[in-house]
Design a binder for these strands. Structure first.
Length: 783
DNA sequence: GGGTCTACC
């Protein structure tokens, strides 16, 4: 073996604390590293093999020292066992990645700064390589620390961790692992590089506000600006002030890296955090615009796809549309037109494949099928994928050469004034348009057809998509922030601050749910609510449910309400699907129907095959139900953790369903609508929005008072997943919210509430104690 | 008559 690396290190010589030997290595036995079977002594055959880490000073490791580790004979992270041939094969590939050329620059910036911004285009290799460079330099294992790298998506966290484990020649779940909801593939004391979802790191911060187990935190895909990443950025900026030992790397793909530099540059020279840029490895994409704006983008898109099929060279097409119905419709039309063209001998055969998230996995897989072979007359076959935004970031399809971009997508928007989150078809941003175009150049040069004018692109499209934090109801986020110890939510250092009204709405909700006290701190109930991975309303109804003797049922219901819709309704079998649903329908409300479905599923599904069969026969989404079951298990563990009783009322008891509806009321009393007039029209309480019951609603009558799970804004205002409630419950469990004197005089809602007050005082001669308290006493008395 | 972008805990 060559001379000890530190003698060659210019970097180490430059540092003030250049040691003769590495002081950190003296601590190995204490911090659990290199002990037992993985230990240095176990594999090095009597100390003849030198540890490549000897003499390295964490965070002052030079590029040469890094390369010595990578090119060495033994794996210093795995008990000095020799590297495998596979390791060397992958290493050669790694050396070809653009980011490898930036190792020197990255290590220098990383060594000298607390916060580093990394701009890397797709295909640069930053997601796999930068965390490894950080590990070589940071050497977290020598101090019992970890490097975290966050991802917006679970699959990414899993697949990248697997790849990096291979690259580092270690077993996944040992030195390199991942942590996502439902799955922790890490080993305490062994794992030093952990890929995880951003939401998972945020959860960890709730119990470890300094994130003290990490020496470096890498936020990847920060340009996506997920809610969790945005909150983490604010937190990390704050934590970094108190933890000089914490390093932060923010990785982004877009050109708008200046915003990250400014945000993280408070203490940097010129107010800009240092940036390292690395280009990607993609092929050029030629972009075309229309001359005139299109009036009907779906029609224009279909026309363009057929034009490409007839006029362009071989290569698959990706068309972006906004939703399931639009996509299925376009698929049918393109298939029909394609067959006609093919029949006339004007074009080759087509394979048209839809892609959206609610599609069952085996159908999603079809996007990877090969294009049909050419016909006898040599006209090439072609695959057309018609997709939602899922193909923009989450799924990559190789072989796409042509992208058709009508310029729209469905986006969540939140209106705090009426407290409604809805999906709207909106123009995409420039950044999104660039991302879509890039999908054409992954395997060879491609073309992107934009169905809007260049002028509109330049003048009308926003630079970036509005970050999620500006488009969401923040009830959940605000609860998390308070749990994280953030006192002043309005002045928290957001990269983009949400509207104060949005925060106010969240605080108001939490206050009414009794999660917050008058000083804005968490109540004991609020503390528990924050621990549940649920919206506050759902958490509340679950936590109070033991008082109503129905916590087993509420576990099932909250799980069902936390997963995508379980009812399937294929376009050509709507009648059959509706009939199947009717078997489960409870006349008093959709929440109760969902519970019926869950119970039927559980009794039918004793094994996986039966479960799938039951779902198939009843037009139910097997994936959703399996997910609900998974969620339920997790929630049940939380219930047990907080000693919340798991109880049921006997099914024969006349209060079985009422108890469930009352617990529901405790969580959702702010989502109540009151019937106005006889034409099936409702008015939401306080916000006074005119709404109608959604078509999917299974109520047998139109009750005077209903609780709804969702407000949907499509062709009109609808409320979805609706259950009848009694006004007595509203006034008993949410006396403040339903105090008649807080409603406008002469409003129909106020008069209805006053009638209830009168009826109650006639009956009992008084108002009585707080509802939940009374209920508690009643249950105690029952025992 | 009317019906679900994508993720995450």
């Amino acid at each position: 073996m060559s001379e000890p690396p530190q003698k060659r290190s210019k970097m180490a010589e430059a540092g003030p604390s250049t040691p003769v030997h590495n002081p950190y290595l003296d601590h190995r036995p204490q911090n659990g590293y290199a002990s037992g079977a993985n230990g240095v002594g176990a594999a090095n055959g009597g100390g003849k093999v030198k540890n490549p880490l000897n003499g390295l000073v964490p965070r002052k490791v030079s590029v040469q020292q890094c390369k010595d580790i990578m090119d060495g004979d033994v794996n210093p992270f795995k008990g000095l066992v020799p590297f495998t041939p596979n390791y060397r094969k992958i290493l050669e590939q790694r050396k070809g990645l653009p980011v490898y050329q930036k190792m020197q620059e990255f290590l220098t910036v990383f060594s000298e700064n607390q916060i580093t911004v990394m701009e890397g285009q797709t295909g640069s290799g930053k997601t796999t390589q930068i965390p490894q460079f950080v590990c070589y330099s940071d050497l977290p294992m020598l101090r019992g620390k970890m490097v975290a790298c966050t991802q917006p998506r679970r699959v990414a966290a899993m697949s990248v961790a697997k790849r990096v484990a291979d690259e580092m020649d270690v077993q996944l779940g040992k030195q390199v692992g991942y942590s996502i909801r439902f799955e922790d593939m890490t080993e305490t004391g062994t794992t030093f590089l952990k890929y995880m979802t951003d939401g998972m790191l945020l959860r960890e911060a709730m119990n470890d506000p300094e994130l003290s187990r990490y020496s470096t935190i890498i936020l990847d895909e920060a340009h996506e600006r997920t809610l969790a990443t945005d909150i983490l950025m604010g937190l990390l900026k704050d934590i970094a002030k108190n933890r000089a030992d914490l390093k932060i790397v923010v990785m982004s793909a877009t050109l708008d890296v200046g915003k990250f530099q400014r945000y993280f540059g408070d203490n940097a020279p010129g107010g800009l955090a240092p940036v390292v840029k690395v280009s990607g490895r993609t092929f050029p994409v030629e972009t075309f615009f229309t001359q005139e704006p299109e009036t009907d983008y779906v029609e224009a898109a279909i026309r363009t796809v057929l034009f490409i099929h007839q006029a362009e060279d071989e290569g698959d097409v990706l068309l972006f549309l906004t939703g399931e119905e639009e996509i299925e419709d376009a698929c049918r039309k393109i298939r029909a037109e394609g067959e006609e063209l093919s029949g006339k001998g004007m074009a080759g055969p087509l394979l048209v494949v839809p892609l959206y998230s609610s599609l069952p996995p085996h159908q999603q897989q079809r996007i990877f099928d090969a294009a049909p072979p050419p016909r006898a007359d040599k006209l090439p076959g072609r695959k057309i994928v018609i997709s939602t935004n899922i193909a923009e970031t989450s799924l990559t399809i190789d072989g796409i050469v042509y992208v058709v971009d009508p310029g729209f997508c469905k986006q969540k928007v939140y209106n705090p004034r009426i407290r409604v989150e809805s999906l709207l078809v909106t123009p995409i941003s420039k950044a999104s348009a660039m991302q879509r175009a890039g999908r054409a150049g992954r395997t060879r040069p491609g073309k992107c057809f934009r169905l809007y004018t260049e002028k509109d692109f330049v003048k009308e499209l926003e630079e970036q998509t509005h970050p999620e934090i500006l488009r969401s109801n923040l009830a959940n986020t605000v609860l998390e922030l308070i749990k994280l110890g953030i006192k002043d939510l309005v002045h928290f250092d957001y990269m983009d601050a949400p509207a104060p009204e949005t925060i106010m709405r969240a605080l108001e909700l939490l206050h009414y749910l009794a999660a917050l006290d008058d000083e804005g701190g968490l109540t004991p109930l609020g503390e528990i609510m924050a621990e549940f991975p649920l919206d506050p309303q759902l958490a509340k109804m679950l936590i109070v449910s033991p008082e109503f003797g129905c916590s087993n049922e509420m576990l099932s219901l909250t799980a069902m309400l936390s997963v995508p819709n379980v009812f399937m309704r294929p376009a050509n079998q709507r009648k059959e699907a509706d009939m199947a649903k009717a078997q489960f329908t409870h006349p008093d409300g959709d929440h109760l129907t969902m519970l019926n479905v869950y119970h039927a599923y559980k009794s039918a599904a004793t094994n996986e095959g039966d479960a799938k069969n039951f779902c198939w026969q009843n037009y139910l989404n097997a994936r959703s139900l399996a997910q609900a079951d998974n969620v339920r298990t997790q929630l049940k563990r939380s219930m047990e953790k907080f000693d919340l009783e798991l109880v049921s009322t006997a099914f024969e008891d006349k209060n079985y369903w009422n108890n469930i509806r009352q617990a529901l009321t405790c969580g959702f009393f702010m989502q109540v609508a009151h019937k106005e007039g006889e034409r099936g029209s409702y008015l939401t309480v306080k916000d006074n929005q005119v709404v109608r019951l959604h078509l999917s609603c299974g109520l047998s009558t139109t009750p005077e008072w209903v609780i709804y799970n969702e407000f949907v804004l499509t062709t009109a205002n609808f409320i979805r997943t609706v259950t009848e409630v009694r006004p007595e419950w509203l006034m008993e469990y949410a006396p403040q919210y339903f105090d008649p004197s807080t409603f406008p005089a002469n409003s129909e809602t106020r008069r209805a509430l006053e009638r209830v007050v009168k009826k109650r005082s006639d009956k009992s001669g008084g108002t009585g104690a707080d509802g939940v308290e009374k209920k508690k006493k009643k249950r105690k008395a029952d025992k």
